[in-house]
Write a protein that binds this DNA or RNA. Structure first.
Ligand SMILES: [Mn+2]
Ligand SMILES: [Mn+2]
Ligand SMILES: [Zn+2]
Ligand SMILES: [Zn+2]
Lengths: 147, 147
DNA sequence: CCTCTTATTGAAAAAAACTTTCAATATGAT
DNA sequence: ATCATATTGAAAGTTTTTTTCAATAAGAGG
């Protein structure tokens, strides 16, 4: 595994002027290593294996920070409205309802819909949240398992 | 205003076998009369003007119920992840970032995007959450006000 | 490397959000 | 009008999130 201080996400933190502290790097690493939306408590538990002194407060603070920097985003799936996942460039999540794995997808082809809504409502549309859910290939094959 | 027991939403409740109690009708009416995402506490405050004995517990219970029946949906906008709005037939919300007014819009034209994501990922997609945000016509004209 | 400034941290306490429990009540069927 | 019971709200309990603040560690500059 690469040096946690040299990952692209760490670079963004550094360039924004934030210190690369152990607790922050632990949260970052947890998000990067888990392809799933994780709630603060889970991030806290996993993070402590990387940085035993990590506090839950810092998890909350770091999630806020990563969210501001666009390095992580909230996942809103029906029963996990308080999860976060690391964010690459696409910023749209596709969530497996069985194993809760989360992947990003590029959001192309929304323009016509947005324009149609703009015309019908008069709203100027500046942002959108699009989240898809379903079954990942693994869970389609092995309906009972989870990962 | 129409008899609260005769609104289309009330009918759905009745037909599903639930009693049309004053507290429930109050929550329902608050959601119908406010074109905005409202959090439980606000619904509670507004609801008490219609049904003074209303308890916050009942607000939570009623929101769950309305959600199950499809009569209300959660609104996930960035800073109000715990708001609810009444739901008609479209189930997709367009939120004004200034006055927080919420309207529904029909979501057509997503099929190509969904198919493309399915092909690229192998996920079977069974649901989607699409929420738009921007400025309503009023707030475009009067940038500072709110409603 | 050291030194120093200060951003960042975690424990603890506080606040907010939500749920459970249960006796009292209102609803709607009869 | 009567009655069975679904529903209610107060209170207590639990969980989640935020605030506070003294101690610490990052990293800039020497
Ligand atoms: Mn997009
Ligand atoms: Mn949400
Ligand atoms: Zn899966
Ligand atoms: Zn507006």
């Amino acid at each position: 595994m690469p040096d946690p201080k040299q990952t692209p996400m760490a670079q963004v933190l550094r360039e924004a002027g934030y210190k690369l502290t152990q607790p922050r790097l632990a949260v970052l690493q947890v998000l990067e290593e888990n392809a799933a939306g994780l709630n603060p408590e889970t991030i806290y538990a996993l993070g402590r294996t990387l940085c035993p002194s990590l506090g839950l407060v810092t998890v909350y603070r770091t999630l806020d920070l990563l969210n501001e920097l666009g390095l992580a985003r909230r996942v809103h799936s029906e029963h996990h409205c308080h999860s976060y996942a690391s964010a690459g460039s696409d910023h749209h999540y596709l969530i497996c309802e069985s194993c809760h794995r989360v992947i990003e997808f590029p959001c192309h082809g929304l323009e016509a819909l947005l324009e149609s809504v703009r015309m019908q409502t008069g709203y100027v549309i500046s942002a959108h949240l699009l989240e898809l859910s379903g079954l990942c290939p693994d869970c389609q094959e092995h309906p009972a398992e989870s990962a």
